[in-house]
Nucleic acid binder design. Structure first.
Length: 285
DNA sequence: AGAGGCACCCGCACGC
DNA sequence: TGCGTGCGGGTGCCTC
C-alpha cells in the first residue's frame, strides 16, 4: 500500500533512470489508467517528452518535462514501476515485457532502457497536465508536506474545526499530504491518541505529540525504503523493510510493544484500525 | 461545509 | 476440490 514513504522510495529509484531521458516509445495498454482521456492520445503526447525532474508531493509522483508539462502518477493500491532488468521480466529482453502480469503501460527511453507500469487492481492514474496546471491541481487536493514546512501549529489549526475522528482527519489528504492507513495507525499509537477521538478535542500537547509522531513514523518508513506488503516492490525489484518496524499495524492480538496489553483491531472511517486499548484511551461515549 | 458511505477493482483468505 | 463471499486500500463522488 504505497503511502508517502513508499512513493518517496519509488521516486528515488525512478529519478536516476528518467532524468535527462526522452521517451522514444510509449504504450498505454489500459484505458482506465488515463481516463477520461483517450489512451492513444495521451501516449502520442508523451512520445518525445524529455524528463527534467522526478518529484513527489504527498502520494503523487511528478514527472516533469522540458516542455513544462507534467505527468502526475498516483499508484493508489497496487501501482508499481519496474525499471530495466525488472521491467524486462528476466533475461529474455523485450519479449519478456508483455509477460509482466497486469502490465498497464510501457515506456521506452532514448538510452534503450524500459520502464514498465504494473497495476493489479487498476486504481492507479496517470494525468498529463499542461504548463501551469500542476500547482493548482495539487493545491486543490493536498495540505502541507509533512516532512517540509509543517508545524504543530499548522496541524492544530487544521484539526480545530473538525469533529470527525482524528484518524479520519489525518487520512484526509487536505489535512496533511501522504498519510495513509498504515502510518495513521502508527502515528496515533506513538502519540497515545485513540483513533476515535474527535479531532478538535485534542489539546495542544496532544497536537504537538501527534505532529511529532506523524513525522517520525514517515521518516522511519523512508529510512527503511518503505514497507513491502503482499506483492509491492520498489522499481528495482527490491523489498522495503518497514513492515518489520510496524508497532501496531497488522499486529492485532500481539502484545503492545509499550505496555504488553493485546493490541486491538476495529473499524474507523471505514478502515481497518489497529491500536492499543490501554495506551490509547477511548473517548467518552 | 463537514461527515459518512459507497464505488471503483481484483487477488486472496475464508467457509461450506 | 470447487464454488461463493467478504475484505481491503485511496480517492472521488454522492447524499444528508
Amino acid at each position: 500500500m504505497p503511502e508517502l514513504p513508499e512513493v518517496e522510495t519509488v521516486r528515488r529509484q525512478l529519478e536516476p533512470a528518467l532524468v535527462g531521458r526522452s521517451f522514444t516509445g510509449v504504450e498505454i495498454l489500459d484505458h482506465r489508467l488515463v481516463q477520461p482521456r483517450d489512451r492513444g492520445e495521451v501516449a502520442a503526447e508523451l512520445l518525445g517528452e524529455q524528463v527534467v525532474a522526478v518529484g513527489r508531493r504527498g502520494k503523487y509522483l511528478l514527472v516533469r518535462f522540458a516542455s513544462r508539462r507534467a505527468l502526475v502518477v498516483h499508484l493508489r493500491m497496487t501501482g508499481a514501476f519496474l525499471i530495466g532488468a525488472a521491467a524486462a521480466g528476466g533475461a529474455d529482453g523485450p519479449s519478456g515485457l508483455a509477460a509482466i502480469p497486469h502490465l498497464r503501460a510501457l515506456l521506452v527511453l532514448d538510452d534503450g532502457a524500459a520502464v514498465a507500469f504494473r497495476d493489479v487492481r487498476r486504481f492507479g492514474t496517470w494525468t498529463l497536465l499542461e504548463p501551469g496546471e500542476l500547482r493548482p491541481y495539487l493545491a486543490a487536493r493536498l495540505g502541507p508536506e509533512p516532512l517540509g514546512a509543517f508545524s504543530a501549529a499548522d496541524l492544530g489549526s487544521r484539526l480545530a474545526r473538525r469533529q470527525a475522528p482524528i484518524k479520519a482527519v489525518i487520512l484526509d489528504q487536505s489535512t496533511v499530504a501522504g498519510v495513509g492507513n498504515i502510518y495513521a495507525d502508527e502515528a496515533l499509537w506513538r502519540s497515545r491518541i485513540h483513533p476515535l477521538r474527535p479531532a478538535a478535542d485534542l489539546d495542544a500537547a496532544e497536537v504537538r505529540s501527534l505532529h511529532r509522531a506523524i513525522r517520525a513514523a514517515l521518516a522511519v518508513g523512508i529510512a527503511r525504503q518503505g514497507a513491502t506488503l503482499r506483492d509491492y516492490r520498489a522499481p528495482d525489484g527490491s523489498s522495503g523493510g518497514m513492515q518489520d518496524e510496524f508497532k501496531v499495524y497488522g499486529r492485532d492480538g500481539e502484545p503492545c510493544p509499550r505496555c504488553g496489553r493485546a493490541l486491538a483491531k476495529s473499524r474507523v472511517a471505514g478502515r481497518g484500525t489497529h491500536f492499543c486499548p490501554r495506551c490509547q484511551r477511548a473517548p467518552a461515549a
